[in-house]
Design a protein around this nucleic acid. Sequence first.
DNA 1: GATGAATGAGGATTCATTCAT
DNA 2: AATGAATGAATCCTCATTCAT
Lengths: 210, 210, 210, 210
Amino acid sequence: MSREHEIGPTRERILDCAEALFAERGLAGTAVRDIARQAGLTPASLYNHFPGKQALYEAVLERGVGPLIGLLEALPARPGGAETIDDTIGAIMAHLARHPRLPRLVQYEALTGGAYLARLGRAWLRPLIEQGVGAMKREPGSPWAEEEHPLVISAWLQIVFGHFTLAPVLGVVFEDDPLSPENLARQTRFLRKLAHVLMSARSGPAQREG
Amino acid sequence: MSREHEIGPTRERILDCAEALFAERGLAGTAVRDIARQAGLTPASLYNHFPGKQALYEAVLERGVGPLIGLLEALPARPGGAETIDDTIGAIMAHLARHPRLPRLVQYEALTGGAYLARLGRAWLRPLIEQGVGAMKREPGSPWAEEEHPLVISAWLQIVFGHFTLAPVLGVVFEDDPLSPENLARQTRFLRKLAHVLMSARSGPAQREG
Amino acid sequence: MSREHEIGPTRERILDCAEALFAERGLAGTAVRDIARQAGLTPASLYNHFPGKQALYEAVLERGVGPLIGLLEALPARPGGAETIDDTIGAIMAHLARHPRLPRLVQYEALTGGAYLARLGRAWLRPLIEQGVGAMKREPGSPWAEEEHPLVISAWLQIVFGHFTLAPVLGVVFEDDPLSPENLARQTRFLRKLAHVLMSARSGPAQREG
Amino acid sequence: MSREHEIGPTRERILDCAEALFAERGLAGTAVRDIARQAGLTPASLYNHFPGKQALYEAVLERGVGPLIGLLEALPARPGGAETIDDTIGAIMAHLARHPRLPRLVQYEALTGGAYLARLGRAWLRPLIEQGVGAMKREPGSPWAEEEHPLVISAWLQIVFGHFTLAPVLGVVFEDDPLSPENLARQTRFLRKLAHVLMSARSGPAQREG
DNA sequence: GATGAATGAGGATTCATTCAT
DNA sequence: AATGAATGAATCCTCATTCAT
């Protein structure tokens, strides 16, 4: 929790500190004063850079989520297949490992149902899911019906996100930090294997209705 | 968001309203005054029943999470096998469908890293995961190495929870409420199929390191 | 700070606890709830015995200060002289040693300037001072002019009271409890000697004006 | 009790008003809101200058008591003797006459046993008493044994303080304000004479033990 | 850009007190 | 005589925000 004074231009510094605190405590739990203090400023000064708390919050989300959209757009220009999936998983996890606050921010926003949620869903999550669904279509021999594809992709997303957003509890359970480099690597390997298992299973036995 | 005045004994009424608001807005985002108002009380009166906001919050978690432990303890006395898994999934989803705030409460607490987190992890999540891991051991022909079992169970949890905690964003994406009865039923079916796929897949191709 | 539950009839028990707390923290610093708790009651129950905080406070003062008036009235029926003074000092100090809260109560009331102050001054302090002044008149060879007598008696009062009301600070200074039996005995001896010195001094040198 | 708006810089103004109210009603009896109102501020504004009520209270004590230490330190560089004592008494009384709240603040703190008490005793009262005891040693022909010196000085202090802290009751008794200029002058003269009487008395008659 | 000072609104909590039981 | 529950008013303090400098 060191002061982040004096590193980089002020606006970026504020965004950094705000991101850290919003990810840690959520919008309601974070005081403008704390963001300012951590950025080495007075609250009054902060208002020279952002018109208000809400605007700062949205700027944080925008800045955090944007690159993830870019990342996804850049990837699948290549042909489908196992290697592409592996690469995609690796790229996403690598990005999140470097920005572990991102899933927390998104999860907080999802829970709180803030004003930014709609934009988050439409501009970011929807393309991501559509892309995944598109990739699934190109996989032959999958045990999943086409209408199930969104569920599979959502499930996959929930696992990726949950690993970060549930990390504190899971850390208690396993007495180990899920976000340590080793555990992130293991989770990446696991996600890859999971993708293969999901795609290549022989169709299971008959299911009962629920 | 109607007033819930006059229904049931006061203490329970307070817990109900508090649960609703904490699940909706989190601990920091919820004002004691709002809980009291919704329960048809003055804030001062609320303090005759709970010594403070934090204590009320923990009482809400305790009351909400307790039955889930009970549910899990009651289930697996029966022999393993596909039907048991299906039943377990059905029971959990049915319970969560009736208490859709539960995953939200837990997720908020996990994000915020509150004081109750340790207890939540040790008294509730750990047995749940251990039980799942135990069940996996009894499944023959699983493609998962024993060390991967906790990851599989965690993944499964993340999907179940994520369906509830990400519901608002997913709702935006799919323009449909994930918590509607139909979608909950669909998700339950999906989870059952997922369980079968996960347990009965032929082992996938070799993986690259990440 | 032990509970004083169950000792004696309720009304007296309340007065005891109230006296202790009022003497310790003053009227404003004492919560009715705390008095009730220490008496083993609910605040609501306390109101069956006293109509309110102020009334309870005055009852405490009345009960505490009354006996001191009685004490003083009983004493000086005897002839003046050195032995009477010694006895009076001994009696007062013995009484205050048994009721060390009394000076604190009075001092708090004097500082706060409460409604009871006038009665305290007129019904209790005035007779006490008049009696002292009367006794001084009967002392031959005193170095004090008659108009100075009230000042001498006040001074004497201030010493007696100050020993109790400044005890906490003096305790810090001398690293010793001024209210221990030994120190109370020493103070009593000192007061006696002081009385003799004050009454029998040869008149001092001329004073400058201030 | 007039508003003290607009006089002097804010911080000093707050300290002034706080001193007045704390001296009048004690710490527990004074509302931050009242201090703020008297200083012509919102409570919120007050918190821009002091981090809290307790800190403000301690700042008041510190500011009030500090000069008294300075006063005492400045005085006794001169040779002992009757004139020095007269001057010291005059200086102390003149200072207290100008700051009549000081003894009240100290007395409140002594009664309440607050956190600042230790510092008050050690940094302020102890040097004051030591100085007095030192001065007594230099007085020839005193009737007091060396071990009694602290008691004499304490007694003297108690008289000085008591005159201020008991003023409200004594005022009732004598139907006259003890803090009027005339009465303060008379008390100063009295204290001087008292000092001489205490120092120059021929040793009194034998005392009985108590 | 930065800041000290100010503030209205609201934060949790405590208070003395009441009243039906 | 005791109490659980209720409450209006007040407690200290924090909040996001503004504005003159």
